[in-house]
Nucleic acid binder design. Structure first.
Lengths: 239, 239
DNA sequence: CGGACAGTTGACCTATTTCAAATGTGGTGG
DNA sequence: CCACCACATTTGAAATAGGTCAACTGTCCG
């Protein structure tokens, strides 16, 4: 059930058998979510964090005028709101983009981990720091990259993150997002996303059609995006 | 020396006398930095985190073409890179914007805190989650707010954060930034920042001159920015 | 077969950028 | 104390990336 989660942790640090058992013991209720359901709302008091088992989800913030910004995408094995353990309530919403399966991890269990499993606590602290690193890279994209670079960069990021859990290879990956979702990730309009995707296709770099990203020229895409995966902290360290 | 830091923690949780002593005992070398010095570079291996005692600093990322995005501003009492404890190296640079004084906190001391002071560890974990919340709000600004809203929003944020440490009131605050720094925060060009500041002045909302922000109409500025401070988590909680 | 979306395209618009030049301003050395 | 230099700020004119509006075309369910 949590193999993708463990794979993600073990890509970054050593997780002992005992720690794996502690993680498994911390899992609570499993829930199924339908696509487009907002399952956590900003300001709600929370007593459990949510781990994504399957599907694609996102964090987003809306402005009073209705403009939406997705602040991060989540793939299987990601915690959607590990930070709700620290924050107790969120400053953003969390939504399923596709049908999803999640499992709850009660904050009480996480408190216990901080009391008795300091190394595992540091690994989970690391996960929240990794989230922040992704946010920073998105700030850079939103603030300083052109439309085509933003989209190319996002695709490069997703290829790596999905690759970690065996859901992407050099040819591409399944991405059940609409162009409008993509516009909310990149701070663009849906119309401009459409034109930019055509541009990427015409340049022979990649194709996003039928909920699938097909990469035709990974090197070219990476170069256009100026993508450097170091912000994803893929090296193993003692945390 | 670390009064601003303690004030910031105590605005969000209860810190016992003992914990305060643990924090004080974790402090290492104090350093003075001149303005415009980059003191931490992306990719460097780090063995201590840095706490800002005095001055204004920032985290920033550069693109190969030279475009810069500042991803967060830091005021006295902020950790500049508490996350380097988890990450071991950073994905961004850290620079002094004014002359600054900082103190190092060795990662070994932080490890010790996670082993022996679980509550304090949770408080520090919270600080990194708060950083991420600020990053998310900046993503929203960069992706979806207009130039004038971005600047107004940033000023509202700074007023609250500086207010927490007694360096701002309703009339304004000292802000020793250039318009060019401001453009790197907001993803705009310096020229447009200049015009937008004039616009804010002409609307009677605020004035940024001579390294000082003077707020003429806080309610109007807040409304224009659609500023809501909940992402700064100012309420006290048991973490 | 129809209805609700998702994607596509064209024409036009505008917020912001770009480029260039002029005008402060604060610090330094003579 | 002044001259000068390096920056920071300000302004104008022209250019453009991306937005807006509106219509048309899939496409997938029910």
């Amino acid at each position: 059930m949590i193999e993708t989660h463990l794979a993600k942790l073990r890509a970054r640090d050593t997780i002992s058998e005992e720690e794996e058992q502690v993680i498994r013991a911390s899992l609570g209720e499993v829930r199924e979510l339908r696509a487009h359901v907002t399952c956590i709302r900003a300001g709600e008091r929370l007593s459990a964090s949510t781990l994504l088992l399957d599907g694609l989800m996102c964090r987003y913030k809306d402005l009073p005028g209705g403009e939406r910004q997705i602040t991060e995408l989540h793939v299987a094995g990601d915690f959607l709101d590990l930070h709700s353990f620290s924050l107790k309530q969120l400053d953003h919403n969390v939504m399923a983009l596709t049908p999803c399966r999640v499992v709850l991890v009660p904050h009480a269990k996480l408190t216990e981990i901080t009391e008795t499993q300091p190394h595992l606590a540091r690994v989970y602290w690391f996960l929240t720091a990794l989230d922040a690193a992704i946010h920073r890279e998105w700030e850079l994209s939103l603030g300083r990259r052109s439309a085509i670079q933003r989209i190319a960069h996002l695709m490069c990021e997703l290829r790596v993150r999905l690759g970690l859990i065996g859901q992407a290879d050099d040819d591409g990956f399944s991405l059940p997002l609409t162009q409008s979702d993509l516009s909310d990730c990149t701070g663009l309009t849906p119309v401009h996303v459409n034109r930019t995707l055509r541009d990427l296709r015409e340049r022979g770099l990649m194709d996003f059609r039928g909920r699938r990203v097909t990469i035709h020229d990974l090197a070219g895409l990476t170069a256009l995006a100026e993508f450097d995966d170091s912000y994803l902290y893929l090296r193993r360290e003692e945390r």
